[in-house]
């Protein structure tokens, strides 16, 4: 690895601090019992008190079934997984055409696909909710999954369009010349080529879906609990960050971090690094 200059090092540590920094007070707060002004560190820690009080504290509460965080985590992952699969199935064909072909009205089409980014979530949310109450879907997981597609799809289409427009078409032609049918060609040549992009897109989908509060709350009528809705109802009281909220915030960040850890090599090498060197 190339040695970094002093400014490079400073810049790198600054960036690291920006990423890791916010997690430090969260981590401390999640194991504090009393952390009030003007103490720099908690004056009483969680483990000093955990056997003395009736209610489970901090992580004891989070891990206790009473907090319902495990089922909420299950819901969150189920929703995120379904949203990712469905949105990929919708975004790949769209990106395939947008990235590889020029046609009349393409820019209008692109604008249309990006429109959920421009229209406020609350406006689309109310509209979707009205349709769901008419069809009786409100309050179900399906309603939540469908509504999450709206803010997720624009990002996926953008990412995958970029991948498709950079794809070397001659590889596909070679496969055709060698006698591969359209399906074979897609499975054995095209899909492996876009796989890093698919992974990056999936990361986007998971991160966005796990963080959506408003649509989840509307469509689930406040009765389907996800990590985002639990955290919101905890924090909507406003003001102070108590140990449970802090721990919960750390947990909410978990799905994205886990996915990134599993796929980071693939994404880093193939898309981000590759993309910049190619560009």
């Amino acid at each position: 690895m190339r040695r970094l200059s002093l400014t490079g090092k400073l810049l790198l540590s600054f960036i690291l601090l920006m990423i890791v920094g916010p997690f430090i007070p969260l981590g401390i707060s999640s194991v504090a019992f009393r952390w009030g002004w003007p103490d720099l560190l908690p004056s009483i820690w969680w483990w000093e008190k955990r056997d003395q009080v009736y209610t489970p504290l901090a992580w004891d509460y989070i891990l206790d079934p009473v907090s319902r965080i495990i089922p909420a985590m299950g819901n969150t992952l189920l929703i995120a997984g379904a949203v990712t699969l469905i949105s990929l199935a919708l975004a790949i064909p769209a990106a395939r055409v947008l990235g590889r072909q020029a046609f009349k009205g393409k820019s209008v089409m692109e604008l249309f696909f990006a429109s959920p980014l421009i229209v406020p979530e609350i406006a689309t949310g109310i509209g979707i909710y009205l349709i769901f109450t008419q069809t009786g879907l409100q309050g179900t997981l399906i309603a939540i999954i469908l509504s999450h597609l709206v803010p997720v799809l624009p990002y996926l289409i953008r990412v995958l369009t970029g991948i498709y427009s950079e794809m070397d078409e001659s590889l596909l032609d070679q496969a055709t010349l060698l006698g591969a049918g359209p399906l074979q060609r897609f499975i054995h040549v095209e899909f492996p080529l876009i796989l890093p992009g698919v992974m990056a897109a999936a990361l986007f989908a998971i991160l966005i879906s796990t963080n959506i509060f408003l649509l989840t709350f509307y469509m689930g009528q406040g009765q389907v609990e996800t990590l985002a809705t639990i955290l919101f109802s905890k924090l909507s009281g406003g003001g102070s960050l108590d140990p449970v909220s802090a721990g919960l915030t750390l947990i909410v960040a978990l799905p994205g971090i886990l996915f990134l850890m599993f796929t980071h090599r693939l994404i880093r090498e193939e898309v981000f690094a590759g993309g910049t060197s190619r560009g």
Partner: peptide
């Protein structure tokens, strides 16, 4: 004027 009791508690707690 704090928006709710939790915000008020935070003002109190922060001195």
């Amino acid at each position: 004027y704090p928006q709710n009791q939790a915000a008020n508690q935070a003002l109190y707690n922060n001195g």
